[in-house]
């Protein structure tokens, strides 16, 4: 870790000013300090944003809930009303890393975290994400990599919260150039889909302020499978949310993590599910649609059947069957 200066900001505007061109925001610090320790990013100043007022609150509303970007993952996990209203969000939060990490990890940091690709995270490989000229994973050790990509980098998004937020059609409010901009999860990661250098669509100095979750979907579910039973990244994660009226799905959304640089969503599948009564056959058809264009590589093709199983199970869980 290189030397840096340090300051504590008390308003988003001063935080932006302090961070300038070469600084970084410090909240939970899990991702940032990890990157700094491996010299994968450099920052001349760390701006502690944990004192920014009002961003550490969970506020319930009629049409949507607001979760401040400084709310910790543990706060989400422990929030009784979230568990009741957005069970999938509770489940996703409880699967994040470990208790020690959940206690400090923030919503903003979880969404903004960088790739976990082991070539990117390795101090001595110069991969595409580090402005190198090849993706080592493509013909190398790609067991944890994407089934879908829009560019030459195959590192997937790993944020569990992004996956569940995508299914809930949540919107991140991002402070950019002094203006609040709204980005849904597809937009928040679109640049990672297009550009191998990008981890998400955030630009230097952008600050996630809060996430708004519409209350339109009364049911939500999240499942992930990892190599181990806890404290492990998902091999594949799946989130689904919908309202259920007379046994039929309304406004269903399915999103998957760890198989694409963006939370993987297929609109035709969502439309297909709309108005359907869920059963195993319907869930299977949806899973087929969602994975239709998957491009499995040498070592990650197992993610296809795994994702298929998780889609089916998550949907059935939504129905309350599993």
């Amino acid at each position: 870790m290189n030397a840096f200066t340090y300051a504590t900001a008390h308003s988003p505007a001063s935080a932006r000013q302090l961070v300038a061109d070469k600084g970084a925001y410090l909240a939970g610090g899990n991702d940032l300090l990890g990157l700094l320790k491996e010299y994968l990013v450099s920052a001349d100043i760390l701006v502690n944003i944990k004192s920014l007022p009002g961003l550490d609150k969970i506020e319930r509303g009629e049409k949507f809930w607001t979760i401040g970007s400084l709310v910790t993952v543990a706060q989400i996990e422990d929030h009784a009303e979230i568990k009741e209203t957005f069970p999938g969000l509770h489940e996703a939060a409880s699967e994040v890393a470990s208790q020690q990490i959940r206690n400090v990890a923030t919503v903003g940091g979880n969404l903004a975290q960088h790739s976990r690709c082991w070539y990117f995270r390795h101090r001595d490989t110069q991969c595409l994400k580090k402005d190198g000229d090849l993706c080592y994973a493509l013909n190398g050790e790609n067991r944890y990599h994407s089934l879908f990509t829009g560019n030459t980098c195959i590192s997937p998004v790993v944020s569990s919260l992004a996956t569940i937020f995508a299914s809930l059609d949540a919107t991140a409010i991002v402070l950019r150039d002094g203006q609040e901009t709204r980005q849904n999860m597809a937009e928040l990661y679109q640049r990672a889909w297009e550009n191998p250098l990008a981890h998400n669509s955030l630009k230097n100095g952008d600050l996630i302020l809060r996430v708004e979750i519409p209350t339109t979907r009364s049911r939500s579910a999240y499942l992930q499978v990892s190599d181990r039973h806890a404290f492990d990244w998902a091999l594949v994660s799946c989130a689904a949310a919908a309202d259920v009226v007379d046994g039929k799905l309304k406004s269903p959304r399915v999103a998957l993590g760890s198989i694409s640089p963006v939370p993987h969503q297929v609109e035709t599948a969502n439309r297909f599910l709309d108005g359907k009564v869920l059963d195993n056959a319907t869930a299977t058809q949806a899973a087929d649609m969602i994975l239709k264009d998957a491009k499995p590589l040498e070592h990650n093709a197992y993610k296809v059947p795994l994702a298929h199983a998780l889609i089916r199970r998550t949907l059935l869980k939504l129905k309350g069957d599993a």
Binding site: L138, K295, P296, A301, Y302, V304, P305
Partner: peptide, 8 residues
Amino acid sequence: GKVPPATA
């Protein structure tokens, strides 16, 4: 036998 062949 559940894993499809690599395509990419």
